[in-house]
């Protein structure tokens, strides 16, 4: 197993954002995480990448207990994270963004792999441009994935990276992700709103509602599950 969550609860004061969630991710798997707004998806991501601390439960990654591992060390053990709102490192060029991610995420430098990532994310022509100011949204999102890949992850967490993209943009982006998976052998854990994309790409889907895990299975079974359908329609009308 790559990642295992065992009865994980995240609470802020009295508010329980993630409640008693257990699941695991295996090597090379493509796993979707869906659920209505406010279901706790981003909080769960933040718990795994270390931005928030779970109040209960246990998380292990490749045999490491994540509890005592500070956020900046999680990249080293193979957890890569792409944010929903792209966060390029300001004042640096695209290539420098990748160099920093690689140096600190892996502990050594490998210019060949940087070129490979630039090529894969189609950012080669902007490698020496300023990352914060000269990239279009699609490119910022590609850089977000590129930075995560540069840390040499075994699992890549993607938080709604498709949001805000046109249909063609989405298709191209999914292609990039697929290439990345083929070439670097990473597992993908993706939060996504678009059920069609999830159905087409993911082998397995998790559904969160009100912080609870209500379904875990193949896209076909999950999206036929009455509770899942209710949570979505309920979420829409409420």
């Amino acid at each position: 197993m790559l990642l295992t969550l065992d009865h994980v609860t995240v609470a802020f004061g009295g508010l329980v954002a993630v409640s008693d969630v257990s699941f695991s991710v295996s090597e090379h798997e493509v796993l979707g995480l869906v659920g209505p707004n406010g279901a706790g998806k981003t909080t769960l991501f933040n718990a795994i990448s270390g931005l928030v601390r779970p109040s209960k439960g246990k998380m292990t990654f490749c045999g490491h207990d994540l509890t005592g591992i500070p956020i900046h060390k999680r990249a080293r053990i193979g957890i890569g994270r792409a944010f929903q709102v792209p966060q390029p490192m300001h004042e640096l060029t695209v290539r420098e963004n990748l160099i920093v991610a690689q140096h600190f995420g892996t502990g050594h430098s490998n210019p060949g792999k940087i070129d490979e990532i630039l090529d894969l994310t189609r950012l080669g022509h902007k490698a020496n441009r300023d990352a914060a100011s000269s990239l279009a949204l699609t490119e910022q999102k590609a850089l977000e994935v590129g930075k995560a890949l540069a840390t040499n992850p075994r699992m890549l967490m993607l938080d709604e990276v498709l949001a805000g993209l046109e249909t063609n943009g989405k298709r191209a982006f999914m292609q990039t992700l697929d290439d990345a998976r083929q070439r670097f052998g990473v597992a993908l854990l993706m939060v996504e709103h678009d059920i069609e994309t999830i159905s087409n790409t993911c082998q397995r889907v998790l559904v969160l509602n009100f912080g609870k895990l209500i379904a875990d299975g193949s896209p076909e079974e999950v999206f036929r599950n009455p509770e899942v359908i209710r949570s979505y329609t309920g979420g829409e009308t409420a």
């Binding site: 931005l51 956020i71 990249a75 944010f83 490192m89 920093v100 600190f104």
Partner: peptide, 8 residues
């Protein structure tokens, strides 16, 4: 945050 998650 961006620097933290890549391991800085």
């Amino acid at each position: 945050d961006a620097t933290l998650v890549v391991g800085v």
